[in-house]
Nucleic acid binder design. Structure first.
Lengths: 222, 222
DNA sequence: TTCCTTTTGTTGTAATTACAACAGAAATGT
DNA sequence: ACATTTCTGTTGTAATTACAACAAAAGGAA
């Protein structure tokens, strides 16, 4: 555990918390590190979640399966992100998503339930933590709305241009690498992969964008 | 202001806070009540938000306009809901949505910036408040994912059935009233209103649903 | 290298949707 | 009650998409 201290300390979750506090908190939370392999379900739809998951390393897809069997990718998470954080706030809520490990991943697991009852007033670092939780959820909230913007566009072309434009703004440059492969991007934008590939080609031939694998250049601005 | 105390006190935002604390907090926050009329913009895309808005009465649409001029309805808010809460957490973030008043609305406005700097440690009720903020954002987060599920369906029919099914579950009965009129529902599900009306008729004629105006009966379960 | 697997691109066709234009119903104001 | 406006439903057509089937490219393992 000790070798991950610096990684943990620099996460948004523990931002503003000293080393000694961190040690106490990890104990208080019953924190442990768990390894996941490709395809492992970290959170499964229907479960009740009382743990905070902090990704230390690796990649996690937050997904949903429709009633008709299609996959929806909600978001992709990496180191420093939390998985299903919104689910721990209310005890009686069932997870509405699946969280799947992509490749190998290393996750710090904290028993939020335990801490929130044990040391609500005792530990003063608890207020720092909950303030961090608020900030993290705010950011996620804004990202979910961005995703809604992306998938709310009418045509495949508009979805792609909006998505690429948003990515470009996030990277603060018109040359950037996207996090999804083609199938994942299609499942994120809720469109057919082959139709999306076709539209990407068209956008390239029209000179609006350029790309090679996951490296994209956006030559226009919305 | 005093006549709204009970309303304010019973909101999730001030849950667990005593009357005397509330009085002090409203002062500390520089709280005031603002009236909005139909079509008024409460939050405008691009603004920086440092105030907490609590709806005391009325109806507010959270919307976005696409680059191509179409309206996207993100969510509909009512009394006890907060508007753009995720935007106050980080000072340097611009609002990514518009919040529009539908009809008349009464909103309590709190200067979060002022409070968070002035009484971070001084007031102990601050920790209760921020814990409430976390819970509120969690709920909103889960609702945004539900919206993503609704609009991620492939066909108009699937969107309608998923939406109605989710509404039915929320109301815990298969007979319920929806919050949107037809045009709003279409803008929420990102589909054409007339095509949606046509599909609703078809679902009714097939016996899967029944409806009259905004009262719906879902006769199947997904 | 070669073989095999995975990922990405291309094309034709059937299904679905947006859009426009209009008709009917319901709500609103006078 | 009446006129007027807003909301909802219906229909035909052009545009867009999903899907299947396949081709090409990239990546890995022997």
């Amino acid at each position: 555990m000790e070798k991950y201290y610096s990684k943990i300390k620099n996460s948004p979750l523990f931002c503003g918390i000293t080393d000694e506090e961190l040690t106490r908190m990890l104990k208080c939370f019953g924190g442990y590190i768990k390894k996941y392999e490709d395809g492992d379900m970290i959170i499964r739809q229907g479960e009740t979640i009382s743990k905070i998951y902090l990704i230390l390393d690796g990649e996690v897809n937050v997904e949903k399966e429709t009633y008709w069997g299609r996959r929806i990718i909600i978001q992709k998470l990496y180191a420093n992100n939390n998985i299903g954080l919104a689910l721990v706030a209310s005890k009686n809520i069932e997870a509405n998503i699946n969280a799947l490990c992509v490749g190998h991943a290393l996750v710090l697991v904290l028993n939020y339930d335990k801490c929130s009852t044990m040391c609500k007033n005792a530990c003063n670092h608890h207020s720092v933590l909950i303030s961090n939780l608020f900030k993290i959820l705010s950011k996620e909230n804004i990202e979910l709305i961005e995703k809604i913007e992306n998938i709310s566009q009418k045509t495949i072309r508009d979805k792609l241009l909006t998505y690429l434009s948003n990515e470009s703004q996030k990277h603060r440059t018109n040359v950037f690498e996207i996090q999804f492969n083609r199938q994942e991007l299609a499942d994120y934008l809720n469109i057919d992969r082959s139709a999306m590939s076709f539209e990407l080609s068209k956008l390239k031939s029209e000179g609006l964008i350029n790309y090679k694998k996951n490296k994209f250049v956006l030559k226009i601005s919305l």
